[in-house]
Design a protein around this nucleic acid. Structure first.
Lengths: 343, 343
DNA sequence: GTGCCGCGCGTAATCGTTTACATCGCGAGC
DNA sequence: GCTCGCGATGTAAACGATTACGCGCGGCAC
């Protein structure tokens, strides 16, 4: 592969001039400029990004650490990040499936010097301190972290409000016996969504009972199990709030198999508004989370920090949610059937 | 951030020794080894990846160029790549949403020197030559490219066989009037799947008629439109093969709204077996494509080429498909309802 | 005692750029 | 005619690592 020296030699100029041509740093005559560009094209030359990064200490790449890539939740988040990064001419160095904190630390290390900033989605509670300890000197934004992470910039989801809104909606439709299927207990989203459920139930006179809280793990399978349990309960709840859409899908499938009709016999609602939610039968009432925007905000915050503006104080951005009423809860739908198709 | 020099100074050794410690290249006494490691830990030192890459010309990163990140198809492919890369200690530099070939070329350039190999999913027919012209000196694997790309290593999907198998299955259930909804004409998958449909129809005595071929664009919306059209046809086809699962979902939704029952009135089948396929109502009969394996094979081929083995001749790997019978086609299902849940 | 071997380590070149600083030539101003 | 200023270009020092090569030294064989 041709280097800057080859181009300089063939064009009869110094490497500095070639460099200046490729960096638009003016002060090079139109003639030499053209010559250099011609020679470069002939040699298929393009500046080596790594060498460039070494001297400028800018990589034009952002690191993205995710716990997983499966499912539409992560898929949408990373898509949002990609869109935002692309708009700013940044590359993405992704790394997922970090089972434990140790793996996360080793991933962090190998990113040293390769990225200008980092976006981390770390479900583990002890992750933040590990990150602080082993990260390089690049800025970091935590997406959807736990409580009380003061030291980092964060972007999170208004889980509590969203859950409250959807449960309040179910109560407003006349339901009193509203069950919930939770996510894994250690997960912060799950915890906050459960708290939102409790708050709404208390505030609006829902029935409070421990058997109405069914534990799941965010998977479709756990939703199915919960759905089967709900179908068999005596008396049966008249509504179910699942802490994410995948579990809601499982609940609906299990209810259907047990001969329980949705929404006539039991209303169902989910959380996240992943793309498939609208394609389920019946279309799922859920809480819309701007997953794309989550990524956009993380990237833009990172760029802000880098550019020096506003660097000192970590900011805590909370993404608000919107209730999306579809047919699964039995209320008149607020959304046209063909609307908002995401292709 | 501490550099190798800082560590060398504090540990009272030369930079070469520090380097040797971090590269396990033997020939360093246990005592100095320990000292160096201690000092490094104290200074939070870790070798700078960029500097390392510059001299070794190994980046331990793979580039991934995709047309898009949306939807479960791409999501699964990239997940497969990620899994395979992680298993080999490689990072992923992803870049998506390349509307045209020009954008692809500029992305390719900026990858120069930053990756050890490249995986490209380029739907455009003219892409391969553009890639060859502007790529660096790293190996390239094309995933699911068009016909006749002899110069590159490729991994593709057995579209023709898969489509033939599913259509043959519909015919074996007694259907004769089988419609198909195609993908965009320019897309190679769409073309091959349509060819497979035609081949099966001809071979097994299906009804051949041009109005049975309905054009779509792989989006759920186009599937809905096709479904509405099918519901209104006289006489109505008794089965539909949609060229991907998203369109099949749209077809089923539109049929349902038109009061046409699936599978009693019309059998429906799709292609790809994306994760949501099993959660649709009824669960979708489709052609399973090992999307994860697609990624795995691309990565392993790249690694093979790098390691020098078997470098010369481009290989063309074809991933076979499997028919997955679920309830949407009315045949006895081959899959237990709870089976194969992907979490 | 001498020569040789090999371990442990240091010196310095190198990777491909960017960029501060030096240099050169040339027209303007006096 | 001499200096000054400035635009265009070259020289060389970084950036942070890896690694070929060389060197000192202790032990062993003769």
């Amino acid at each position: 592969m041709a280097t800057i020296k080859d181009v300089a030699r063939d064009a009869g100029v110094s490497v500095a001039t070639v460099s200046r041509v490729f960096n638009d740093s003016g002060l090079v005559s139109e003639d030499t400029r053209r010559t250099v560009l011609d020679v470069a094209a002939k040699l298929n030359y393009w500046p080596n990004g790594v060498a460039r990064s070494l001297i400028t200490s800018r990589t034009h790449a952002l690191g993205v650490l995710l716990p997983d890539l499966a499912g539409e939740f992560f898929s949408e988040v990373i898509r949002g990040i990609d869109l935002a990064a692309r708009a700013r001419g940044l590359h993405l160095l992704v790394s997922s499936s970090h089972a434990d904190t140790r793996e996360l630390v080793s991933a962090l290390r190998s990113l040293r010097g390769r990225i200008d900033g980092l976006i981390v989605m770390a479900p583990d509670v002890d992750a933040p301190s590990a990150i602080r300890a082993s990260a390089g000197d690049f800025p970091i934004v935590l997406v959807d972290p736990g409580y009380g992470v003061e030291e980092f910039d964060t972007v999170s989801i208004a889980n509590h409000e969203g859950a409250q809104a959807v449960v309040r909606h179910l109560l407003s439709l006349g339901h009193r016996r509203v069950a919930t299927v939770t996510g894994p207990l250690s997960n912060i989203d799950a915890e906050q969504r459960l708290a939102g459920y409790h708050a709404a139930m208390r505030a609006a006179g829902g029935e409070i009972a421990s058997d109405l809280v069914i534990h799941g793990d965010f998977s479709e399978a756990s939703g199915r199990a919960a759905g089967a349990a709900i179908a068999a309960m005596q008396p049966r709840p008249t509504a179910v709030f699942a802490a994410n859409d995948y579990m809601a899908a499982g609940v609906m499938a299990a209810l259907g198999e047990a001969g329980v009709r949705v929404p006539q016999d039991v209303a169902v609602a989910g959380f996240d508004d992943i793309p498939i939610a609208r394609y389920l039968t019946p279309p799922l009432t859920t809480v819309h989370v701007g997953l794309l925007e989550l990524g956009e905000r993380a990237v833009s915050r990172l760029v802000e920090i880098q550019s020096g503006r506003d660097s000192a104080v970590p900011q805590h951005d909370v993404l608000s949610t919107t209730l999306v009423v579809r047919r699964s809860c039995g209320a008149p739908s607020g959304e046209p059937l063909m609307g908002k198709a995401r292709s």
